[in-house]
């Protein structure tokens, strides 16, 4: 583990130095990410403006949900965003060198670039939470705050896990990029809604099959005290961060297994 952390630091330095080579892009990247997230914010904002509340949740509660979703997305973007590059790395043969070095190929994938847009995501998420949390009526407790932080981290892991599992398909299938876009769209658009909107069946599907519930809905329900909207008992909701952690572990395992099918390009 200590070895892995040290390798992470070493690789992060190279990624950062690579990014500095193109530092002119820094601000434009951050602004780009801000604009992209602002688009999602406007989407929710306009909807709340036109319709008042959504599926029984007040605008403040929906904004808390949106803020938590953005925060866990920015955790994903910060640590795991490069998992979407698996196709590229496999098709260009860059993966060769990951396999030749004495450290985890997965770690080398995550650190192949240091994505500056991540800062845009973090800024937006922090701003939304700063505005939304005080507006919602929340009975704060230190443990609740700690739980929220863990849930946000686990949510980021879950989104990363799905994208990583998708990426791992690239070892065997030639192109699955549209699945990346699907996951991005579904998380980015529908993850912002209180999932009871999809009916009981829909919210079960979004918990069990496509685990959207863990990146916003469940944590927001716990924090705002709206656990009445969940289709399962509250005590289970408290345990929900375990899903993100387990999901990431399973995805890394799957990725490692699939990488055995890597057929390096070029003869």
């Amino acid at each position: 583990m200590a070895d892995l952390l040290r390798d992470f630091r070493i690789l992060l330095r190279v990624a950062w130095l690579t990014e500095l080579e193109h530092k002119a892009n820094f601000f434009i990247s951050v602004i780009g990410a801000l604009a992209f997230n602002a688009g999602q914010l406007l989407f929710i904002g306009v909807l709340l403006n036109a319709f008042g509340s959504i599926a029984g949740w007040t605008p403040a509660e929906v904004m808390v949900l949106f803020g938590i979703r953005m925060a866990s997305h920015s955790m994903y973007a910060f640590f795991f965003r490069r998992v979407i590059d698996v196709d590229l790395v496999v098709h260009t043969g860059e993966f060769d060198r990951y396999l030749l070095r004495p450290t985890s190929p997965f770690l080398q994938l995550l650190t192949r670039r240091f994505n500056l847009q991540q800062f845009g995501d973090v800024i937006v998420a922090a701003a939304i939470l700063a505005v939304a949390l005080p507006k919602a009526s929340i009975t704060w407790h230190p443990l609740l705050a700690l739980w929220l932080v863990i849930a946000i981290g686990a949510g980021g892991m879950l989104e990363g896990a799905l994208q990583l599992a998708r990426g791992a398909l690239a070892f065997r299938l030639q192109n699955t990029q549209s699945l990346t876009a699907l996951i991005d769209t579904v998380f980015g658009t529908y993850g912002n809604f209180p999932l009871q909107i999809f009916g009981t069946l829909g919210s079960i599907l979004f918990t069990v099959v496509l685990p959207l519930a863990f990146v916003g809905w469940i944590p927001a329900a716990i924090v705002t005290g709206r656990t009445d909207s969940l289709w399962f008992p509250t005590w289970l909701a408290w345990l929900s961060p375990a899903v993100g952690v387990a999901g990431m572990a399973a995805a890394i395992f799957f990725f490692t297994r699939q990488s055995r099918h890597y057929s390096s390009p070029g003869s």
């Binding site: 390798d7 070493i10 690789l11 190279v14 690579t18 193109h22 030749l100 004495p102 450290t103 070029g266």
Partner: peptide, 26 residues
């Protein structure tokens, strides 16, 4: 390992950084 077709080094960075990174990784 040396592949004539593609480099194992960090493309955008000076050779020194690549060698130092290899030093640290190994």
């Amino acid at each position: 390992v040396v592949f004539g077709q593609k480099t194992q080094l960090w493309f955008d960075l000076p050779l020194r950084v690549s060698l130092e990174t290899i030093r640290d990784l190994y």
